[in-house]
Design a protein around this nucleic acid. Structure first.
Lengths: 170, 170
DNA sequence: TTTTCCATGTAACTCGTTACATGATTTC
DNA sequence: GAAATCATGTAACGAGTTACATGGAAAA
């Protein structure tokens, strides 16, 4: 939650935006790296407004639906630094739901295990291709994408090594 | 949730156990790899009993609190295979909350960024040490631990490369 | 003219967590 | 005698998701 707020604040610090615009940006560029959904984004924006971290300006473009433009306040700026340094000085442990199946792989015939993991391998390759297709960003936003890419490559290598060892033991 | 059930079923398939025992095992051996908490485990076990995947035998050891021993049924066996092949043939995307901070690292002075990330580095090293201390398991349960270890090593390398690039740009 | 895009949200639900409750028993 | 262990849970809460609602404008 704090990290989601950090993301929104950081984007707003760079440029004031309305909710749809924020969400579009995340969806288009960071979908592989984060998982902030639309209703959550709106909810957090309003909560931050209550807390005085952002203020709202209303705007209209032609006859389009009215926009709520979110602008960082000074309190929001302070919160940004706080959340940023908390984030960077922590390490958030990651659990891998996919791994649970691996714990029981020795209960399958190797040929069956291989067949199932081939499908996973294909999905991993597709995920990696998606990340590779993201256009390069300026600044350190690119780090997020680079890290995700490096991670997926690591995962793919690891899975292929596992597949090889299964093939050899067959 | 399905993956948590898969984990419980898989452990029970190997050996019938009571809730406390199951949870102890997970806590002791798989804490770094999964995040199943005690109340969740009890809840899922009872839910699976309602669904007929496990049945309960009551037992008493001395004057200790009575135990509920969970035993896999035939339906549970079927569910196990179903959940296992679903798990293995999927890839569950992973988001990294820690990464959000990286997107804004160019807004800090490099020296400050380095200082904060050094703390993260230390935490990563400690997490890695914890995994290295887990005694070796028989069978493919060990895969889970190996994967977590390899992942943490990847993370540490990546972070150190980032730190180096920050030091050089300073 | 039907679909997609723009722009906002709400309501109900799910999964899981935290904190607490109970009570005997073994260990320090 | 106090603290940790064994063994079971419940109740309240929290974060986030899914599905739905609204309604005009642009694109196909």
């Amino acid at each position: 939650m704090d990290n989601h707020k950090l993301l929104l604040l950081g984007l707003l610090r760079h440029q004031k935006m309305h909710g749809y615009q924020l969400f579009e940006f995340i969806e288009r560029n960071l979908a592989t790296c984060t998982d902030l959904k639309k209703p959550t984004a709106y909810f957090l924006l309003h909560q931050m407004e209550k807390d005085g971290w952002v203020r709202i300006e209303h705007a209209q473009k032609g006859n389009r639906p009215p926009r709520k433009i979110f602008i960082l306040t000074e309190a929001g700026e302070k919160a940004f630094w706080q959340l940023l340094s908390e984030n960077l000085s922590h390490y958030f442990p990651v659990a891998f739901p996919s791994d649970i199946g691996l714990a029981f792989i020795d209960q399958l015939r190797p040929s069956e295990a291989i067949q199932l993991l081939q499908i996973r391998r294909q999905l991993l390759i597709e995920a990696l291709d998606t990340v590779k297709d993201i256009p390069t960003h300026s600044g350190s936003t690119q780090l997020l994408i680079e890290h995700q890419k490096a991670f997926l490559e690591f995962e793919l290598n690891w899975l292929e090594a596992l597949l090889n060892s299964l093939v050899n033991s067959n």
